[in-house]
Simulated scan of single mutants.
Amino acid sequence: MSETVLVALGGNALVQRGESITMETQRRHIRAAVKELATLAKEHKLLITHGNGPQVGLLAEQASNYPNMSAYLLDEISAETEGLLAYLIEQELLNQLPDDRATASILTMVEVNSDDPALYRPTKPIGPYYSEAAKKQLEHNKGWSFKQFAQQWRRIVASPHPQKILQLEAIKNLLESDTVVICAGGGGIPVLRNGDGYRGVEAVIDKDLTSALLASQINISQLILATEADGVYQHWGTAEQRLIKEATVEQMAAYRFEEGSMQPKVDAACQFVRSTGRSATIGALKDLAQLIKGHAGTRITR
């Protein structure tokens, strides 16, 4: 095997906007995603992370429909979705990889700081899209915060920065044995450490920021942030929109992108480039082979 690559699958690359989050839908998208990943795994050591925003939002909404039961907290729901999506991805990898290629899924806890101001400022979108009327009802009934995307609304929650990946050594050991590893789903399960040990946090962690932290602590050659978009656009959604094909960290710092969507991907890519001196690429999952070669997407360099 040659270089080690980390591919971060966007949650919305597994469920498209407007689709019902059914098992059939998720399996269909995961099958298509793994087709690209399995091809990559034939030539590279491979580490896979993935988003879970749509799934976390759906389970949180379902759990809150039982008034006589305590609703599951976001860290608990993150653990549920991390395990489920890893299972689906790994099952499809086993179907598409040679029989002698090992795979493993690691339920990953990620430590955050209790004094992180992001814990008290919701920015991360999760769950389905809502109409104006549904959004107002949920605000009144559940006290949720929302942000508008086009003509619809999504719930937003706290998203603290990742500080420490608790299963890092296990992930390293598996990669060294040429195992395809799936980990840190949804950015990992957020936990705090105090005098009594670790406890979960009512938040979610951005999976791209966790992926960048993970990639910088392992001998990762390339970080690929795979999403719906074919790259990062300047002036997105206007007549002047322009694909940024390649830029330095300093050049990207001069731009601002949509918070809770593209900006965290750019921040994560720049974080990885600054800490390692290697390149990071943001682009469409369907272009994965070209993203690796630098022929598609937005490549960020020193």
Score class of each variant (00 low, 15 high):
202 E>P: 09
270 C>K: 07
187 G>T: 02
201 V>D: 07
194 N>Y: 05
209 L>W: 02
229 A>Q: 12
233 Y>P: 04
195 G>C: 09
263 Q>K: 12
198 Y>F: 10
199 R>L: 04
191 V>F: 09
267 D>E: 10
241 Q>P: 05
200 G>E: 04
238 T>G: 13
208 D>C: 07
260 G>E: 13
229 A>E: 07
191 V>L: 14
227 T>D: 04
193 R>D: 02
190 P>G: 08
191 V>C: 04
225 L>N: 01
262 M>A: 09
191 V>Q: 08
213 L>V: 13
194 N>K: 14
254 A>C: 10
185 G>Q: 00
197 G>K: 10
243 L>G: 04
268 A>E: 06
204 V>P: 01
247 A>M: 05
265 K>Y: 10
196 D>S: 15
188 G>C: 13
184 A>F: 06
232 V>I: 14
267 D>K: 11
264 P>F: 15
250 E>H: 10
243 L>H: 15
255 Y>A: 08
213 L>R: 11
224 I>G: 06
253 A>G: 06
268 A>M: 15
205 I>Q: 01
186 G>H: 00
219 N>F: 02
192 L>G: 01
188 G>Q: 00
211 S>I: 03
182 I>P: 00
184 A>P: 03
227 T>W: 13
217 Q>P: 00
244 I>P: 12
249 V>T: 09
267 D>M: 13
240 E>V: 07
215 A>I: 07
252 M>W: 08
239 A>V: 06
256 R>I: 05
185 G>V: 03
216 S>G: 10
234 Q>R: 05
211 S>E: 09
210 T>Y: 09
271 Q>T: 05
240 E>W: 15
194 N>H: 11
247 A>K: 01
216 S>Q: 11
258 E>I: 12
197 G>H: 15
241 Q>S: 13
254 A>D: 15
203 A>T: 10
222 Q>W: 06
209 L>A: 15
195 G>A: 11
200 G>A: 14
240 E>G: 06
244 I>A: 14
211 S>R: 08
210 T>E: 12
266 V>W: 07
262 M>R: 01
193 R>N: 06
187 G>F: 01
223 L>D: 04
270 C>Q: 12
216 S>W: 08
191 V>D: 01
252 M>K: 09
228 E>R: 11
234 Q>W: 04
257 F>W: 12
254 A>L: 11
258 E>H: 06
245 K>E: 13
181 V>P: 00
189 I>A: 10
191 V>S: 02
243 L>M: 14
204 V>Q: 02
209 L>C: 02
233 Y>T: 11
215 A>K: 02
242 R>G: 04
234 Q>K: 07
193 R>V: 04
186 G>P: 00
237 G>L: 09
207 K>Q: 10
188 G>P: 00
